[in-house]
Nucleic acid binder design. Structure first.
Length: 640
DNA sequence: GGCGGAATAG
DNA sequence: CTATTCCGCC
């Protein structure tokens, strides 16, 4: 089925050679594994098999040898290599498939999907195990095209940081390796390298892509079931460009004024700043394709992921209808993927249905309306909000955004904030939430919790938000306490992993409206506990426009928060391993501070702790994956 | 086989 | 930090 090249997955180049790797500049094991997996040549040695993201090391010794060659560690053996793999467990990059020898499973949530929605793991057969990624093309394509405005230029737009990194990367091309020349290196690299280098600009896209966009974009996509539609005639925004209106940096590069330069700039690979819209939007523009197929695939993949990996459902939650509609869409074949991503299909995106997928199913339901989803521009970065006196800025920014509608919400936020000392940031809620979540999330391990996966599936969609602000916390605590079984209810289980957050999300709301995307929990959740919140959980439907806006707004914030959160998470993950609740809390606080600081790297003081403490509802952290991925993407191989 | 602690290298 | 080494334990 696929050509070799295709067959493998095609992760974005950058995925393979990121520079950003945290500690070591060298290639990371998981990247290496991915490389091997994507090459057919190595299928006898290691291959996808089983569930999504699951792969089996058919020849451990060989894999070890290859790895050793790559790292110039002749003494490498499977025992050692496996130790390294085990370190990924806590990071949630990998987990062991129990009961199957030499079989591990990638958490693509973290690694790929979110990050690279359009990546394709290989068409063909890549078994189910291959990450479910979509894409019409073979590799990822970031459809540059963009509808309208979008941004073509987005690249430049992107945050400098990212951009720069990309650039560097490009410049360098693949780096390589040990000259020893073990076949491995050379092969892999060559293949990749060639590809990469060859592509000029396109590559750039890829590079850029990765990070957040996709995911942001996705998250921003709202289904628009009746809700939105009603509320406005689709917003102007257009069908095509989902993000066109976005306030941010659109193509024009408008980086949001608000963004604090510092933040926005933060180049570090980590993406310290992802959240900010600025980033996202650009990406959206450039990378995000609206090609229906892509969307469809992506969604499906995402969905799967959700199910399989606990991706944060929130994304989907928003869109109950997510089901990737497939109205009719026959095209069985994939678009020529080969050519790269670049093609610009234009999509009128919405016109098509996303549906169809080869494998799939047809779960797709058809919907009368061609497109349910409505894409929206990313909200402003929280930073932006922050920076400007948070509020003011926010409002402005929001207004700018297409959905100017949100402006109103700002108030809300304020109020919310006001509750606490206004510190630096505005996202009180989110932060808080995020933190908690984070904690929760981190804690979890998928392995054990695997069952969760399945559970999640159900849960994700099913659960309603019942979380009261404290509720989670409590659970959290309890959970931690338990040493043993995770039998605890899914949701209680802190471990659940990242996805837990999702729980929170689950919106109680009715599908219809809620789905509209408007329904977002953040605020709602909080209000819930109380008695009647205007936006009662269940009653999303009747929500007045204002409320809707607010919700949306809040949603946006959340998202942003997520991004940050992610970072936090990452850190946490590491940290948390053992922490207890109490300890965790503290840490959380710390982390939060970091996050706020911006990327963590330094920042102004993280004062917000106070806010954080309360255990608000959590959300998801889907984005964490992104960050993580980003952070981790370091692949370069250096010579020995 | 698999896990994970501990020490350590880079 | 990530990975490598070693190693004891299940």
């Amino acid at each position: 089925m696929k050509t070799p090249a295709d067959s493998g997955f095609a992760f974005p180049d950058w995925a393979y050679k990121p520079e950003s790797s945290p500690g070591s500049r060298q290639i990371q094991l998981w990247h290496f594994i991915l490389e091997l997996l994507r090459k057919e040549e190595y299928h006898d040695v290691i291959a996808w098999q089983g569930d999504y993201g699951e792969f089996v090391i058919k020849d451990p010794d060989e894999v070890a040898r290859l790895w050793g060659a790559r790292k110039c560690k002749p003494q490498m053996n499977y025992d050692k290599l496996s130790r390294a793999l085990r370190y990924y467990y806590n990071k949630r990059i990998l987990h062991k498939t129990k009961g199957k020898r030499f079989t591990y499973k990638f958490n693509f949530n973290k690694l790929v999907l979110v990050n690279y929605p359009f990546i394709d793991m290989g068409s063909g057969r890549v078994p189910q195990s291959a990450p479910p990624v979509p894409t019409g093309g073979n590799h990822f394509r970031f459809p540059p095209s963009t509808p309208s405005e979008v941004l073509s230029s987005s690249e430049e737009l992107r945050s400098p940081g990212m951009f720069s990194s990309v650039a560097r990367r490009m410049a360098r091309g693949s780096v390589s390796d040990c000259s020893d020349g073990t076949s491995t290196n050379s092969e892999l690299e060559e293949a990749m390298g060639a590809r990469e280098r060859g592509m000029g600009p396109e590559r750039a896209y890829r590079g850029l892509l990765p990070p957040r966009l996709p995911h942001d974009s996705f998250f921003r996509v709202y289904p628009n079931p009746a809700g939105l539609a009603r509320h406005g005639p689709r917003v102007h925004p257009e069908p095509l460009s989902p993000f066109p209106v976005s306030p941010l940096p659109g193509p024009g590069g408008l980086l949001a004024p608000t963004l604090s330069p510092a933040l926005s700039m933060t180049p570090t690979p980590h993406l310290p700043y992802t959240p900010s819209p600025s980033l996202s939007s650009p990406m959206l523009g450039s990378h995000f394709s609206f090609n229906p197929e892509d969307m469809k695939h992506y969604l499906q993949a995402h969905t799967q992921s959700v199910y399989n990996y606990h991706l944060s459902p929130r994304a989907f939650l928003h869109y109950p209808n997510i089901i990737i509609p497939q109205p009719h869409r026959p095209t069985p074949e994939k678009p020529a993927a080969h050519h790269l991503h670049g093609q610009q299909q234009h999509p009128s995106p919405f016109s098509h249905s996303l549906g169809q997928q080869p494998g799939g199913g047809e779960e797709g339901q058809q919907h009368p309306s061609p497109f349910k989803f409505k894409l929206q521009p990313p909200p402003l970065g929280r930073k932006q909000r922050e920076s400007g006196s948070s509020l003011a800025a926010a409002s402005s920014s929001s207004s700018s955004s297409q959905s100017s509608s949100f402006t109103g919400s700002s108030q809300k936020i304020n109020s919310a904030l006001s509750a606490g000392p206004p510190k630096i940031k505005v996202e009180p809620i989110s932060d808080i939430e995020s933190e908690e979540e984070v904690e929760v999330t981190d804690i979890s391990d998928e392995d054990e919790l695997n069952h969760i996966d399945e559970d999640d599936e159900g849960d994700i969609f099913t659960r309603t938000a019942r979380h009261h602000p404290h509720h989670q916390l409590n659970n959290h605590l309890r959970a931690n306490g338990n040493g043993s079984s995770h039998s605890a209810p899914p949701h209680a289980n802190p471990d659940d992993d990242p996805d837990d957050d999702e729980e929170v999300f689950k919106t109680p709301a009715t599908p219809s409206l809620s789905s509209a995307g408007l329904a977002f929990p953040l605020i709602n959740l909080k209000s819930e506990p109380g008695q009647a919140a205007p936006i009662s959980p269940g009653g999303t439907r009747c929500i007045p426009l204002k409320l809707r806006f607010k919700r949306r707004w809040s949603e946006d914030q959340k998202m942003e928060a997520d991004g940050e959160r992610d970072e936090a998470e990452d850190k946490k993950v590491r940290a948390n391993g053992e922490e207890e609740v109490g300890g965790k809390r503290e840490e959380v606080g710390r982390r939060v501070g970091e996050v706020e600081n911006g990327g963590g790297r330094e920042g102004a003081g993280g004062v917000i702790l106070g806010l954080m403490l309360p255990p608000p509802p959590t959300q998801r952290r889907a984005s964490s994956e992104l960050q993580r991925a980003t952070a981790q993407l370091s692949l370069e191989n250096t010579g020995c």
